[in-house]
Nucleic acid binder design. Sequence first.
DNA 1: CGCCCGGATTGATCGACGTCAAGCAGAACG
DNA 2: CGTTCTGCTTGACGTCGATCAATCCGGGCG
Lengths: 253, 253
Amino acid sequence: MENGPVVVDIEQLRRSCGACALHELCLPAGIDRNELERLDSAVRDKRTLDRGKLLFRQGDAFNALYVVRSGSLKTFVENADGEVQVLGFVLPGEILGVAALVNDRHPMTAEAMERSSICELPYTQLQQIVGELPALHRQLMRVISREVVADNSHLVMMGRQHAQERLAIFLQSLADRHARLSRDAGALTLSMSRYDIANYLGLVVETVSRLFSRMEAAGILAVNRKSVRILRPDLLAQLCGSHAAAARRGEAG
Amino acid sequence: MENGPVVVDIEQLRRSCGACALHELCLPAGIDRNELERLDSAVRDKRTLDRGKLLFRQGDAFNALYVVRSGSLKTFVENADGEVQVLGFVLPGEILGVAALVNDRHPMTAEAMERSSICELPYTQLQQIVGELPALHRQLMRVISREVVADNSHLVMMGRQHAQERLAIFLQSLADRHARLSRDAGALTLSMSRYDIANYLGLVVETVSRLFSRMEAAGILAVNRKSVRILRPDLLAQLCGSHAAAARRGEAG
DNA sequence: CGCCCGGATTGATCGACGTCAAGCAGAACG
DNA sequence: CGTTCTGCTTGACGTCGATCAATCCGGGCG
């Protein structure tokens, strides 16, 4: 993280939303300077989580929304039998906790995958400000929307795509989000384990491992443990296409 | 429908939420008489949809929420390649369109699976009333919550359950919702085709057909085209258990 | 009644992915 | 430096569910 091409001034980040490098990607996006200061008043001192620590646990009472400043987290649900389903991975500039908005209780657990720093927005204060700033309200709705749409895509992936397409879509999504962060979209650092990736994709770890190897052999990726370089974005994008579409084009399975 | 054990007085239903047999299951649940009248003022004349007709289409501008009074609908998304993923089935007393709340655009299509009658709640009016009635606002949030939780369950099912467990969970869910409607939970009438069921479960139609046959042979169900009787709710519930749990109990796969 | 047509069922076969098992590599630790 | 542990990779094999194909059944229609 610390030797990447983008050097982040942590002190600057600490000061305010207005000064935060992420503010165009986050809840404040699209609101004006004055409103931004108003929002700032609701942001509590940020928290830092070490790898493996929980930001909130499934069933916890809902108190605040969170925004990732640096690092990354995973969210997952656990059923009565202790089986886990990973729901998503959360990168800097992305919001956590909106699924609890509706029920005053977190329906999932959020766990840091590496040392991460997080803004906390206590909801009672946020709610009041949202009531006063329609633009912020709209942005909050847009942010919730993003979650719903993501859930739908995840469902379509689980229901209709084959293993290789799933991994391709996953990598493409990570690359897109890297690009949003002005990072090199061609050089990914996977903070999640192969187990988490497999679980998220509805596969087992051996299958994911084999797919990485196969895509490396095909010259699409260069894989070295947690670091993945995308050598052929065009081929990767092709693999994201649906199985049915590939069949229609007369390609091999 | 018309020869079922529950005879519904359509004229009574038409009059108002207060007189509607479903109002304890629907958006008005938990709000008081006066508030109910206020809500009534926002409910536009109900619409009737014939089988195969669309209530709204993926991408449509969002104008209103809908509640199913009678009949049933399916919701689905369609990707660029025309592949369909069925997201859910909507029964009387259940709400449609909340996923569009957040984005002012419907992210899915809703299609009637049989002749259905539907309440329409224009959103501008509803929004105003929700602003005045905190109890209604809470109930609206609760209803959105139900959708999020349902999406999560659907995801877990797709990611972790085997074919037979998926069908069992599906039937169990239908039975539970029948019970909520004070219908006989042991006698289901499937308004959706085998294709829709299969798609919803992330399977193909042949697999679903075979599973029905197998569960009938096991004495769990009595299946006759669209009518399904649950003969052994206990065994059905067992099949809903996770594969891992079954393995832990030392059962056969 | 015979015919057709779409949905559903059933069987035979195939293949993608899971399971089981072995081996490997990097990190942590003494 | 070796040991151990954990996460990852690779191979061999089995199986669940998809695919392909035939048939059945009920409904609509001439």
